[in-house]
Design a binder for these strands. Structure first.
Length: 233
DNA sequence: GCGACAG
DNA sequence: ATCTTGTCGC
């Protein structure tokens, strides 16, 4: 497997990225309930970076939603395609993540992304972006509240408080473990917010972060370490 | 104008 | 995201 280059025509600056984001946003579908939690497949996606060498490694891990056992894993290594700009995260991760997804044999089912979906300055975060490009249902589970505000959710697993963008509920601060900081869930594409939260809880029976993200996180770090070792030889 | 800001 | 040791607790 070689290193994925930056795609031809990829946005070169923020202005171009904003234009692409605006176009793709029109294809976002938010009136579907989405797949039921605990059924079919769920795929965790994550990336790791080496800014010095301009490398990004992506992982896609397909789990059986009922047992949380690994069905299939895939990785891809690419060149960093965009700087980190809050609100434009997708342009940094998408090419390599898509390459990892494309090499899967199994049906990915629901895409579970590290970051936000519709809870985003322009309603089109990473999870929505990947959902639209693949046509698949997707959700975003972030570890930080980004620019949104929320009240403290109750202390029990399953307790939540709305994530607010002005007065609108764009996501939820959801507690997956008693007494532990919540995660921040939003719908990405072709799923409801309630469905996104149900999936998140089903995927996090024991740890704060969903099993999908934990698996994908470990795998992309491994892939990055291997790519770095290979590039030196 | 200044600071904050998913990963 | 990433740079980083030990340490408190289940």
């Amino acid at each position: 497997m070689g290193i994925i280059g930056v795609p031809a025509g990829w946005p070169a600056d923020e202005e171009a990225a904003l234009a692409v984001q605006r176009e793709l946003r029109e294809r976002l579908v938010l009136d579907e309930e989405g797949p039921a939690a605990g059924e079919g497949h769920v795929t965790g996606l994550d990336v790791a970076y080496d800014d010095g060498r301009d490398l990004v490694a992506a992982a896609a891990v397909v789990l059986d939603a009922a047992t949380l056992e690994v069905v299939e894993e895939a990785t891809a290594v690419g060149r960093v395609s965009f700087p980190y700009v809050p609100g434009l995260l997708a342009f940094r991760e998408v090419p390599t993540v898509l390459a990892a997804l494309a090499s899967l044999t199994a049906d990915p089912g629901l895409l579970v992304c590290d970051g936000y979906g519709v809870a985003h300055p322009r309603g089109f975060g990473l999870a929505s972006h990947l959902g639209v490009l693949t046509g698949r249902p997707s959700i975003g589970v972030a570890k930080n509240p980004f620019t949104f505000s929320h009240d403290e959710p109750g202390p029990e697993r399953g307790d939540f408080a709305p994530l607010l963008d002005g007065g609108e509920e764009v996501g939820r601060a959801l507690r997956t473990r008693r007494g532990v900081k919540p995660v921040f869930v939003s719908a990405g594409h072709r799923i409801s917010l309630a469905g996104a939260c149900a999936h998140t809880l089903a995927l996090a029976p024991r740890y704060r972060v969903p099993e999908t993200t934990r698996r994908a996180d470990a795998l992309c770090r491994r892939a990055l370490a291997e790519a770095l070792a290979a590039e030196r030889s």
